[in-house]
Design a binder for these strands. Structure first.
Lengths: 203, 203
DNA sequence: TCCTTTTTGTTATACTGTGTAACAATTGTG
DNA sequence: CACAATTGTTACACAGTATAACAAAAAGGA
């Protein structure tokens, strides 16, 4: 594995090989699950020798990291601009730019989310929870907008799971009672309060 | 693969085998990444013959599905109760019960979130985005509570990514301009509005 | 208990993918 | 051109998947 020295300009053969491998992996991941993709398949599609892969990467996951780091770097820049805004109209504009960017780089986002080795399991759980909220959550039912309801229930489900994940990573602090309050204000009250603001959404 | 006939009581040997395999997989996944676990390892830990695995499951992922379906079924029941509540105090109570349940079944939630084949990549992206918000988001900086800030920035990052994921799955509808409004009201305004309500959180 | 059925264990085997080594061929650079 | 670095080719050891055939053990009904 040649050192990635930023001072020296890298050998054009190395740049070419790595670019071919990145493109081949992206191409494969738009078709198959990441876990089912073999190094042999990637090198064959990239038209690069099998052993050459191991001269640049230790694993397919490392290559995937490079692909996403390269591709989503611009996203972080846009999010940084977005996070600095405090004016309301600018917030909306930057939010729109984020989604326009996501539309342009749809391939990479699909890869980030869709690769179903384990993500499929998580997605299934999210769908179940969202369906539960969609059927049972009274404030959601009152909104009456099907698309808004679908979006809100999905938002609530993912937010709840993400909050549980963060809480477990944070050694289960603060206590469940506090988290109950957080859940109510940050997720439910917020979503219910947003129903009115989002009522202009077609559905 | 014997049919899972719910009418007939299943053979005790089958129940025993499947239980041993489920427990072995859970035990393994608390130590290693799911992608690195082999069927051989699971059957050895379960003290079951290697070939017996294929008499019950087609893949390790199928076994994982069964583990999570079994273990998280109660979560859906609690969430359903939670979603039906409209009284504020009950909402808090049910929210607390959710997190107490998550604490009891911490093993399963760890498995659901931690298995880092692809989830690790996603988690890294979430951390990057959350850090961006934590450093740049002015309303967050004003809150002054470190733990609340960490929790809120994580919530914003996961919510934004989840919203993008839903939007891509929904064939990029509604238009980015509408999504910009949704982003503002559902994520930012909600989080900012929750800062005050959550100010009692220690940190 | 005896008999039948079902499940599990044992062994062998074909196949695919990983990772390394040695050496030849090609390409970039001074 | 000559040297250095990269890539390609071939061979090999190893681990994991998946199936088949047959023996052993356990369950359930008469």
């Amino acid at each position: 594995m040649p050192a990635n020295n930023p001072r020296k300009r890298t050998d054009p053969r190395v740049r070419r090989t790595r670019r071919l491998l990145r493109d081949a992996l992206i191409s494969q991941m738009l078709e198959r699950d990441f876990a089912s993709i073999s190094i042999k398949e990637v090198t064959e599609r990239a038209e690069v020798a099998y052993v050459t892969f191991f001269r640049h990467y230790d694993s397919l996951e490392q290559l995937l990291m490079e692909v996403l780091d390269e591709g989503l770097g611009e996203l972080l820049l846009r999010i940084e601009m977005l996070a600095k805004k405090s004016d309301d109209s600018d917030l909306e504009t930057e939010g729109r730019l984020i989604f326009e960017y996501a539309g342009q780089k749809a391939d990479l986002f699909q890869i980030l989310f869709k690769s179903p080795s384990v993500a499929r399991v998580r997605k299934k759980v999210v769908r179940n929870i969202a369906a539960t909220f969609r059927q049972s959550c009274l404030p959601l039912a009152r909104s009456g907008h099907p698309m808004a309801t679908a979006m809100l229930s999905h938002h609530i489900a993912t937010s709840l799971l993400a909050l549980i994940e963060w809480w477990l990573d944070n050694r289960m602090e603060p206590a469940p009672a506090q988290m109950g309050k957080v859940y109510k204000s940050l997720i439910i009250d917020s979503a219910v309060g947003a129903v009115n603001s989002v009522s202009a959404v077609p559905g």
